[in-house]
Design a binder for these strands. Sequence first.
DNA 1: CCTGTATGATTCACCCATGAACGAAATTCC
DNA 2: GGAATTTCGTTCATGGGTGAATCATACAGG
Lengths: 145, 145
Amino acid sequence: MNEIPAAVCPTSLAFQMLGAAHEVEARLESALDRIGLSVAKFGVLSKLVEAGEPLALGSLAERSCCVRSNMTQLVDRLEADRLVERINDPSDRRSVRAALTPAGRERHAEGAHIVEEAGRAVFASLDDGERATLQRVLAQLGRSP
Amino acid sequence: MNEIPAAVCPTSLAFQMLGAAHEVEARLESALDRIGLSVAKFGVLSKLVEAGEPLALGSLAERSCCVRSNMTQLVDRLEADRLVERINDPSDRRSVRAALTPAGRERHAEGAHIVEEAGRAVFASLDDGERATLQRVLAQLGRSP
DNA sequence: CCTGTATGATTCACCCATGAACGAAATTCC
DNA sequence: GGAATTTCGTTCATGGGTGAATCATACAGG
């Protein structure tokens, strides 16, 4: 059976995708909430850990695929949490770099653990092949635009 | 090749999924923006069209998988756009029902057209089999929790 | 030099979403 | 009938996101 799959309605597929992603995000969000992080905050910490050095807010916004004004506020909150610090760039006085604090580095490590767990739970109902297919299809979806 | 797919990292898969959904949502959002709608507003109009009758805000919130306070504001904005109207329920004076206006019904029809187009464009890089697989995997993801 | 122009961050107004607190109305249970 | 409880919508504070406007600084070209 199922040799000739019926054409999939693009509208319902799109909304199904948004719904599923909403579900996944809610699960990560509630897991991270246990250590006072959000998906957005964890994302910023990850970028800083990856980079291995303080990053200008604009660069951070670009890597996070969001606008600069958003990063301003996100870093405001992260700074209030004492997880990052703003430092001035002497070589360009317009620029402000976000630097991880030791607490930020540590919180990111805890977050990475939690996200790994939560991710595993979310995709537990899929077998290895389905996960690989999903990854391939999502990547394809990102490449075309 | 690829007989034994490497295990997929759940963290990166989760973030890839959020990123792809963000992309899809942004495309729908920008398409709907041309007629002054958003994905959230279109969703509410759709629920009202489906139901074929005015719906209480609580019921609308439940069908949209969001909290009631959110629906209050969403209906505020839809009412400001003259696309829905609040009507009192004489049989339960606590209840407020949202009713489509003729403009709302018409705007929904335009939106449905636009979303269909945009959805088709978004998934254009996938073949029929991939779309069917994606749908199946997303459904599976939603069933397990 | 100095006058544009481009770029970095911020502020502001807005949209969407959540949860807690609240008042009003319906229900339940003496 | 009246007290306690539940349910409905709203309001408020907060978090996360966008785009437009603004200010300071850097970087041209004359």
